[in-house]
Design a binder for these strands. Structure first.
Lengths: 334, 334
DNA sequence: GGTACTTTTTACATCGTTGGAACAACGTTG
DNA sequence: CAACGTTGTTCCAACGATGTAAAAAGTACC
């Protein structure tokens, strides 16, 4: 059924190795033989057995990508870009979902054998320093997004503190004085970074911080954003602006405001984070922090590529990719 | 560096095969030896080399999933469910993106060697009958979503014609008389099926079909939906309802209506298709056809599993998974 | 103690590929 | 024409695992 090098060799009347040499572009093959081998290759429709090749070469040709859930737009978009970037360098991408739980993350991390994949890009959500094995399965690991803790591992992300500060400063510059935040979650590194940026911006604008204006969010989903917004608006002195830690929360918040009969941005201005594709089409469209996801994916794949192809000595990199503030109707109005 | 069976065997003082037997749960191993092997396994932290094992077993442990783009919510959600379903059966999933172009789809299809993956789930967009190799790389193939043409290949999808008819009947039942459609695209099988359902529902409701009410859409993206809606509303006798062939088009349409100062559903009722998570949170929320994506993913993985594990004789299956109509504000109002 | 049987372990070949060394063929050179 | 370097090819071992078959050890019975 399946064609192997041996079959091709028999047909072409040469040794297996010669065929292998032709397949791998080895220079010194007699033109006559090369021709015959190529013909035999074409006739049989030979395809290398990737597993066997990699067994021999000690490579797998696969890259793992660990994310919480593909159904979350940010991760769907990011995964798509990672796959594209990896493909350019000859890798196929294997996706593992963790649902953002620490146990699944730890499990996934420890299951990444060097035989399964050549390297891994991981986007942890709940992982802690102790969860990182000293030697993560013997393969290069690159972390995406925020790290909760200090681990000497390659890392690519935007400057979350600065990005959050930028978002909140924007709200302050519009004259908003009661700026709330939605998304506090002590178990997520990203949350504390964005919270830090939020506080920094408040301080900068001469506004005082109040716990009452910071709504927690276990999951950063739309429904949670909606509920959080409602409870903020139900307070005695409701906010006149909200910084949501991601776009899903913001979309939920938009909806909550509308359901209560208030207007965005007149009554409440809203800023999100991630620039999901849907955010440009919500009503009103959403002002948001726009990370350069392509740059992020490229940088991460590039880094893991460098590590895999030899660079094991240089110290862990910490790469920051650019972001922008996309100003739309939810703060600017129509 | 890497621990192999041999290392474990040396440490435990038994043969390689005995270790292999323990690892694979072979019954006849002396308790004493089993204990020592297990200890050695634990000490060394042995992990099987998947590549080598599969080389020997003739399996790869991978399943391919071919989709247009992960950044499209429907495919992100679907991919997530497929990965989960595959994982239950011990497979890892490899994702290939085609951008929905015929050339990339064909290329992907032909690159799926039996060594790379055990089977593949493909969601073609533009592929035609001729593109399907008689023997698709020697591995089981299951098609997801609509086939443009008749190919004797396993297939899992919802009844698109019926679903579209359901959506449009709903609009007609609300008393709408000028029901438009957005998404015509002769190169996509899905489009013609949904169009057929649309026409069937019109006929059933005693409404006449008019080409002027059917807007084409090359890509089924939000921006296209918005543009299409605007041009429909600019006509002499604008529609009072629109059936969009997917939720992205519908979200774009929602926005267009709002930008023109009209109201949904009072002036124009809108129905989408796919039930993307975002559709429950748009303003107004979107009435849409809700395919049971979990059932779809499960059925597809199950089918490819059956094919891989022996069932090669039974004729190509054509499985229909259930769907519902999710009625929300875009047709019902607040 | 020998035979027959079962349980347990081992040696060996094998999956499809590639690296390295050995070997063969060739034209050049002294 | 012998010695030599270059080019092209083949043979063999190896990657890490498992299936097969045969060997070894153990048990039961006569």
């Amino acid at each position: 059924m399946t064609v192997t090098l041996k079959d091709v060799a028999t047909l072409a009347g040469v040794s297996v190795k010669t065929v292998s040499n032709v397949v791998n572009g080895y220079a010194f093959v007699k033109p006559e033989n090369r021709r015959r081998v190529e013909e035999a290759l074409a006739v049989t429709g030979y395809r290398p057995n990737v597993g066997a090749r990699n067994l021999r070469r000690g490579r797998t040709g696969f890259l793992a990508l660990m994310v919480p859930e593909l159904s979350i737009p940010y991760f769907g978009e990011l995964a798509g870009l990672v796959i594209t970037a990896a493909q350019k360098r000859g890798w196929s991408v294997l996706i593992e979902q963790t649902q953002g739980t620490r146990s699944r993350e730890r499990e996934t991390l420890s299951s990444l054998g060097p035989h399964l994949v050549d390297g891994a890009l991981v986007h942890p959500e709940a992982l802690e320093a102790a969860d990182f094995p000293a030697d993560p399965g013997g393969i290069p690991l690159v972390m995406l997004g925020e790290h909760a803790v200090d681990v000497p591992i390659d890392h690519v992300a935007i400057d979350n503190v600065l990005a959050a500060r930028t978002a909140v400063s924007h709200l302050a510059s519009l004259g908003r004085r009661r700026i709330a935040a939605i998304g506090r979650n002590p178990e997520r590194g990203t949350s504390s970074q964005r919270l830090a940026g939020y506080r920094a911006a408040l301080a900068e604008a001469g506004l005082s911080y109040s716990d009452a204006l910071v709504a927690p969010a276990e999951k950063w989903h739309r429904s949670v954003g909606s509920a959080a917004m409602k409870s903020l608006l139900a307070s005695d002195s409701p906010p006149d602006a909200v910084f949501c830690f991601n776009d899903l929360l913001a979309v939920g918040a938009l909806r909550a405001v509308a359901e209560l009969g208030l207007r965005v941005p007149e009554d409440v201005a809203i800023v999100g984070f991630d620039n999901n594709e849907e955010s440009a089409f919500s009503l009103p469209s959403l002002t948001t922090i726009a990370p350069d996801k392509t740059a992020l994916a490229e940088a991460a794949v590039d880094l893991v590529h460098r590590r895999i192809t030899g660079d094991t000595t240089s110290p862990p990199q910490d790469i920051q990719t650019p972001f922008g503030l996309e100003i739309r109707e939810s703060t600017r109005g129509r």
